[in-house]
Simulated assay, not measured.
Amino acid sequence: MTREEILQQLRSQVKASRYKHCLGVEKAARELAVRFGYENPEVAALAGLLHDYAKEQPQAEYLRLIDMYGLDEALKDWGNNVLHGLVGWLKIKEDFPFIAQEHPEILQAIKTHTVGSSTMSMLDKIVYVADYIEENRTFEGVDEARKIAQRSLDAAVAFETVRTVEFLAKKRVPIYPQTIETYNAYVNALTAVEE
């Protein structure tokens, strides 16, 4: 597929503001890949571009994917914020079969971009962080996150995960267990950067 065909397909799946965000994550992922020496910045950029491809799918589509691919039934208890990564990567696999064939690492990065993982690859970290710091983000703390991301991917993963856990805890909503595992795996990286 050409870039324009990929963009056209993405535009057909998400609203304009989400499309703009995806372009921002594409740019941030490419920049992080170059900064930290990832072997293929264009692969990182494509993962960033498509990370939210399934974000606006109806719940019924997530349920179909869970059933069709035999995923853990417990996923059905979670909402879009978790499912668009943990399940949405399968929608990308269906709609962009060349990615599954040529770059399965993109699907893995998209799968983990919402909840992280205790064993993230460099590409996983790039997409996870790029989603948080892309240039269109304006929330409190994003400038600090961007500064940390200039120095250390691990510390940036830790910072983002700490902020996510704090946010969800304040809202008194359940936190997906893999997010807690991510926190535990990376929190020391943040402490090391702050010292």
Rank of each mutant, 00 (worst) to 15 (best):
M1Y: 09
L7E: 12
R11M: 14
V14M: 13
K15L: 09
A16F: 11
S17F: 13
R18M: 15
R18Q: 13
Y19D: 04
C22M: 11
E31P: 00
A33H: 10
F36W: 09
V43T: 14
L46S: 09
L46G: 10
H51K: 13
D52C: 08
D52L: 12
A54K: 01
E61L: 06
Y69H: 15
D72C: 05
A74E: 15
D77A: 14
W78T: 06
G79I: 08
V82W: 07
V82E: 13
L83V: 07
H84W: 11
G85T: 10
L86E: 14
W89A: 03
L90Y: 14
K93I: 03
K93S: 14
D95G: 00
F96N: 02
I99F: 02
P104S: 04
L107P: 00
L107Q: 04
Q108C: 00
A109F: 12
A109H: 13
K111M: 11
G116E: 05
G116V: 03
S118Y: 02
K125C: 01
I126W: 02
Y128G: 05
Y132L: 05
I133D: 08
I133A: 09
N136Y: 09
R137F: 00
T138P: 01
E140R: 15
K147M: 11
I148C: 00
A155G: 08
F159Y: 15
R163L: 05
V165W: 09
E166S: 07
Y176V: 09
P177C: 09
N184K: 12
